[in-house]
Amino acid sequence: MTTPLLEIKNLHVTIEGKEILKGINLALEKGQVHALMGPNGSGKSTLSNVLMGHPKYQVTGGEVLYQGRDLASLKTDVRARAGLFLAFQYPTAIPGVSVVNFLRTAMKSRFGEAFQPKEFRKEFKAAMAQLGIEESFATRYVNDGFSGGEKKRHEVLQMALLKPELAVLDETDSGLDIDALRVVAEGINRLRGPQLGILLITHYQRLLSYVEPDVVHVMMDGQIIQSGGKELAHELEAKGYAPYETEKAPAP
């Protein structure tokens, strides 16, 4: 039996004393794409932040294993260098820091000795071109005054350059028009492969018609209440989350 790329076991998480995640279980194998769907406030973004080690959240129970390794004691930057990546739903602006400077620093950190400064410009330009990003983007400040579409492309650009082994994409489809959605989806599909596991967090089914998931999970009120194949996403699209709301067991 192989170790899953990501294994979440009975994960409980609170923020400011309020429990948001109430026993999440999930296992994701290398090369798989899992979609995590659920209504607003179900805890999807909390899960993505916890996976990346955001200091605001407290893990009060359970564990997260990445490549068999307990993430609890690892700081955010260590997780990232180990190949974990989070595409943020709302990327933070860092005024004064240019995209090119930021990405050079990030790649240097991620790849260490293997980072080749001479290749960087070329690789960076090629990755931008693939996502239809203009070159002038490089000198803009990170996420500062970016449009919704620019922010999401920038996240996928980083993912392409940092070559993660597990990518968590938090609502990367939100706020995109259909053309931007297609570009972003193509970007994700290009990276898809046996070396990469993807957890695709989304509210809607529409991204899933471009990036087809192997497994779909439905999350409600801090728990995964159903998992299944890609047909589950279509079902959700047709019926919405309402049937789950009523099925939900009363609080113990």
Partner: peptide
């Protein structure tokens, strides 16, 4: 804190 978290999430110490 959010700026630091964003940068660290890209591997930057």
């Amino acid at each position: 804190e959010e700026q630091a978290f964003y940068l660290m999430s890209r591997g930057v110490p």
